[in-house]
Amino acid sequence: MTKQMISTATEQVTSLTASLTTGLKLGERYVQLLDQLATATVPTELLDAAGQLVEFDLNHAYVKFPQHYQPEDYYLLLMGRLLELAGIGDFAVKPDPMHRRLAMRLTTFENDYTFCFEQKRSRPGAFFCEQTDHEPLFNLDLAHHSLQFDNRALVDFLIVKEIANHNDLELQGVVKPLVAFANLLVEQLDFTINLGILATDNAAQFKLAAPELSLTVIDKLFVQTAETDTVLLSLPQNNGAKLALASDTALSLAFDPDDYTKQWFFMVTDAKAQLSFLDVLLHYPLVRDWYLANRSALAIRDDQFAYAPVDEHVVVNSPATDAEPIKEEAPASAVEEEDGENDA
């Protein structure tokens, strides 16, 4: 707008029309991006549209758009479209008129789960949350092209709360499309992802958050195996224990004997590399009960991506110095801290 004094009616009209035009153009651009997000079939175009929409400021002094979506909805739309294009029909995005938003529901089995994205101050991107407990299962950050699962939230949601209501296969059915989505982001859009305790690679190490582990905790598991067919074995170099869960499946709790820090970690090995640490917790009550009873000692560390401010290359931040876990499972996590915490 001009700083000059508007002296004549014509000048005022011209000024108004100019302002209205920018407002309308803003609306036009918004419609264009929405359209792109709803109809494009190329993943990069979908990401481009969603990325712009979450940053889009639709506020204008002269032109109002009372009907519009919230940034959280664009994350959900993007996710829904990518899954749809990949033929993964486990989730459906539906309008949720009561809350004036979009919501995602599982189509694979009867349940009341509703998922939405939620934004939090001080943390980039948005969190995929189930709407009863608002556990932030993963963070999706379009600007940094990253997706990270939250180990604490996954355990709290699936292992602590939902295991009582659903069997292990049903709960795996919740996790499966989420992992598929994360993998889509890697394959189609070159995202960096952190699967956390959902990683199925046999070499994946699920590191403990606590800096030290009392062997008493392993003793407890050993004693629990006494009445079962499962034997807890000592590792050959006395660097931990290994639980044979099935003929070709084992859970190890170990440290690298050559590593002076003695960082303890879980490993899950199975012939087809299909099982994650979460799967073990879901399938084996022996491990699950022991894990939950000793969670402060056994909680898995959440490695957070940190972003260099200038070139924004993703680097993995090792939170080894965050020695004092305030909350279980998430010593380095700022996920559920509503008040701003510096993510250095």
Binding site: L215, I218, D219, L221, F222, V231, L232, L233, S234, A241
Partner: peptide, 10 residues
């Protein structure tokens, strides 16, 4: 040295 078994804390 002999150890009895290969289980935890044998």
């Amino acid at each position: 040295r002999m150890y009895f078994g290969n289980w935890w804390d044998r």
